[in-house]
Design a protein around this nucleic acid. Structure first.
Lengths: 127, 127
DNA sequence: CAGGATCCCAAGTGATACTG
DNA sequence: CAGTATCACTTGGGATCCTG
């Protein structure tokens, strides 16, 4: 596939993996995406509900992030032409699959947050 | 732990998980961290070697990112007082554990990149 | 070789006002 | 209710020059 030496131990090409991961992190690495995906993982939600549950998000960023997720096929947007209009957001099949590796990262995060904080303190004091 | 209703299906508190994940993404969500961790996952490396293997990184960002990783206890920096000086970077134990969830994300990335690209094209054409 | 210090621009983000 | 549009600000990151 790629003319680059692959790592003996790991499966797959590390260079390709790096590129792919970078592109995904460009998408989910922003301040709001994972929070939205996480909430939608609990069930569908409408715009105002997301806005209420995500503390501190501006309406601009909520819209922008949802548009991006919709464009990537991770979130489905459904408009119900009632009065007033109702819009529901839900994870797509692909969106659900993203939840899995995200959980892995969450678990790692929770397990290592205190270690990291301690390391930071030690590092700062050593200055 | 937290005075917030937890999700029936998922393990752990989603609110805590969200906060923790956000803090981790603040750390690894930048443009270079995962690439550096990925390369160090292949084995120790010195400064100039990292600089060569990571295409496009500036010396400032390499230094800055390595400092951050060192501060978080994910990377160990070893100085050999030779002439000229030699500096080796290596993953710590915690750094190695991060590699696991990162692989999960990599696998997801590779499996879904084409789907995402296709979805983006469809979305853009539907405009 | 392995950085530190500085300047500067582009991008991400928030606040505010307006709309179908 | 669910957005769109604009402005203003903060920050990430690159370029460049300098040092032990």
């Amino acid at each position: 596939m790629v003319t680059r030496p692959s790592t003996p131990g790991a499966g797959g090409d590390p260079y390709l993996a790096g590129c792919a991961t970078r592109r995904i992190l460009d998408r989910i690495g922003d301040r709001w995406t994972v929070l939205i995906v996480g909430i939608l993982g609990d069930g569908d939600a409408r715009f105002s509900e997301l806005r209420r549950r995500i503390d501190g998000i501006s309406q601009k960023m909520l819209t922008q992030t949802l548009r991006g997720l919709e464009r990537d096929g991770l979130v489905r947007r459904t408009v119900y032409p009632e009065v007033p209009v109702r819009v529901e957001y839900a994870l797509t099949e692909a969106g659900w699959t993203l939840l899995e590796p995200l959980r892995a990262l969450q678990i790692w995060s929770i397990e290592h947050l205190s270690d990291i904080a301690a390391s930071q303190d030690a590092y700062d004091n050593a200055t």
